[in-house]
């Protein structure tokens, strides 16, 4: 059982009247991974998560959590997941401790065990000081933590969080992210967001999704490396444009070179490499060989944000 991936999705499709929310989705998530679902609003992230949490069935395809089918073995699946739906719906009229105890009971914990677990998650999520307060009177950051504590209370194998940091201020976002990172140490986590820095900071793997399909899936670092082939190196050199052109025109790794004169009799050189390799060493060596002065040498790295915009834009144009 332990060799089975935590999530295994094959050709998952969900159609609503007049709209396909999820379109032949396939992916798997191994145990202990923290995976981020990244996509614009309406990409199908929430629908996929709702299917995985066995709230609603797929139109076709299969999804398994810890080896159990989300539709046919829904109870087994629900016992093993902690799901925090979008907008973190919790009973605002209840007190924090009372709410968590109620949820622990629903999730099958006995009286004694639920008390122990509620104490643990209150501590884990920094809620000890507010445990007797009414949830509706808490700040949004604390409410979010209550939602996370609820998802954790029965010690699930898999935690599914739908937009866990939405609507929070920067301090609260940082606190929730730290918490999610800690969760990743003991649980498999699947979270969705449309904030790119969030997946960069918290996830070991990213699934970029748009219009119900996965456009890219890899670690944030690999995505940046593979997809930023057009990453440029920019240098400002104290030489004439003609001299710089002559020195660089024979370098085989360069695919494209742009030159422009800038103030102070410097030339601005922008180079694009052929296979995404770093040209900074080549530039510094040639500058030294020619005895020029160099006042700037930078590599413009494409962030995940650029990749995301690039991928989702390309899709829109295809459509």
């Amino acid at each position: 059982m332990d060799d089975v991936p935590m999530i295994e999705v094959r050709d998952l499709t969900k159609r609503y009247p007049g709209r396909t929310a999820v379109d032949g989705l396939s992916f798997s998530v191994g145990r202990g991974e923290v995976v981020g679902f990244l996509g614009p609003n309406g990409a199908g992230k929430s629908t996929t998560m709702r299917i995985l949490a066995s709230f609603m069935p797929a139109t076709s395809g299969t999804a398994r959590v810890a080896g159990f089918d989300v539709f046919h073995q829904a109870d087994e699946v629900r016992r093993r997941i902690g799901y925090m739906p979008e907008n973190n719906p919790i009973h605002l009229d209840m007190r924090v401790r009372e709410f968590l105890k109620f949820r622990a009971r629903l999730k099958g914990l006995g009286w004694r065990r639920s008390r122990e677990r509620v104490d643990t998650v209150l501590q884990q999520c920094g809620l000890m000081d507010v445990q007797k307060r009414i949830i509706g009177q808490l700040s949004k950051g604390f409410r979010q933590r209550v939602g996370l504590a609820d998802a954790l209370v029965h010690e699930p194998d898999l935690i599914i969080l739908d937009e866990p940091t939405i609507g929070l201020d920067p301090h609260q976002i940082r606190a929730v992210r730290t918490l999610i990172k800690q969760l990743g140490e003991r649980h498999t986590v699947l979270l969705s967001t449309h904030i790119l820095s969030e997946v960069e900071m918290t996830c070991s793997r990213v699934l970029i999704m748009n219009r119900g399909r996965i456009l890219a899936a890899d670690t944030p670092q690999n995505l940046e490396r593979h997809l930023s082939l057009d990453g440029q190196v920019v240098a400002e050199i104290a030489a004439t444009p003609a001299a710089v052109r002559e020195a660089f025109c024979d370098v085989p790794e360069i695919e494209r070179m742009d030159l422009s004169a800038v103030e102070g009799e410097y030339t601005r050189l922008a180079l694009t490499s052929k296979d995404g390799q770093d040209l900074r060493v080549v530039v510094s060596e040639l500058v030294r060989a020619n005895g020029w002065t160099l006042r700037e040498l930078t590599r413009s790295r494409h962030s995940l944000e650029d990749i995301f915009v690039h991928l989702t834009k390309a899709r829109k144009e295809d459509a």
């Binding site: 332990d2 145990r31 202990g32 009971r105 629903l106 099958g108």
Partner: peptide, 26 residues
């Protein structure tokens, strides 16, 4: 290695009573 924790199970009656209590409390 990562292993599946035993999933908690509880009698349906207890869950039902917890829900009834919540309804009344609500």
């Amino acid at each position: 290695a990562w292993r599946t924790r035993p999933a908690p199970r509880r009698s349906p009656l207890n869950v039902y009573l917890a829900l009834v209590r919540r309804e009344l409390g609500g």
